[in-house]
Design a protein around this nucleic acid. Sequence first.
DNA 1: CTACGTACGGGCCTGTTATG
DNA 2: CATAACAGGCCCGTACGTAG
Length: 315
Amino acid sequence: MVGPSASQFRVLSIERISESLFAERTIRKRLCRDYGIEDIGDPVKMADSLVRSMGQVRSCESGTEYPQNNRTVFRAAALALASNMRQWSGFLSRRSKFESLLEQYDPIAFSRAVEVDSARIRDVANCLGGQTARGDTNAMVMWARMLAEVADYFNALKELKRYMQAGVDGGEIVPIVAALLGSPRKRLEKQRPPPSGMESWKAPGMGIVLASEFLRNLHWEAFKPDRHINRLLGRWFPEVVRNKSARAEILAREILYCESKDVITGLKYSLVGMAVTPHDCNFTKADNLVWALGAYVEKKNRESDEVYWKTVAAR
DNA sequence: CTACGTACGGGCCTGTTATG
DNA sequence: CATAACAGGCCCGTACGTAG
């Protein structure tokens, strides 16, 4: 094996990423505008604000803890779908309208409203905008109908997680559940059927990527394997990608009974992301910052040779 | 044969980036 | 400056593969 000795390995440098995110004036201004954060000069503190503004990391000081009920689940699903292929900052300006159209994320009220009000689906789609608006809206309706039929989806999900946990490393469980919700295989569903009221564990409108976003909205720590993440991690940590490849295949095949390239790739980059996150940083924060770097600074085919990692002693 | 799974390509249709 | 090309995630239909 080439590279650093076995007692050392490379992890993301949150400091370097933060500095690079806010180094250039125009990009700094755009990030401040898009996420409503203050330009206070200190990139590490601004990165914290950015991550907090993305709303997926549980913050200890604010007491905005959501109850573990179907409304919370519907909110997490709807926001994940709302993030699909659209500029988040644009959505934020229409968010309150979106929330009233979705009956404040009450799945029963929303599915009833859709039955009664024939224009509701179109209104939600118009509110979302973008190429996937119709598909995302349809998926939200399916989520609402599904949740209206299930007593306690959140708890069912926790039980599913506990069941899937067997024979799996701690950090691997969230990507596995995301992959399962994205493309559940029949064999697995026979083994672990969905709660009564649901035909399948399939998360409407979501593959492994959006399902990771969904779980993160429920404050499950995850690395969402989207295109920016895959591209940058593949560029920065090619040896880790190679190392995780076999593990991702085993998890897909033996745990999920799935051979899909999409699922294996998604699992692989989730594992890579977690492996290169430093100890003092949670996965969601690292993921949010790498994503922002990919979306705003290190754009596709125009990546710099900046070093975004550091070498640390083995765990 | 059935049941199930995977690969692949087209469609969606807009904001961003490249090209004339 | 206007126009063309592309990116991005998911769904669907089709073709094909494998196990029982």
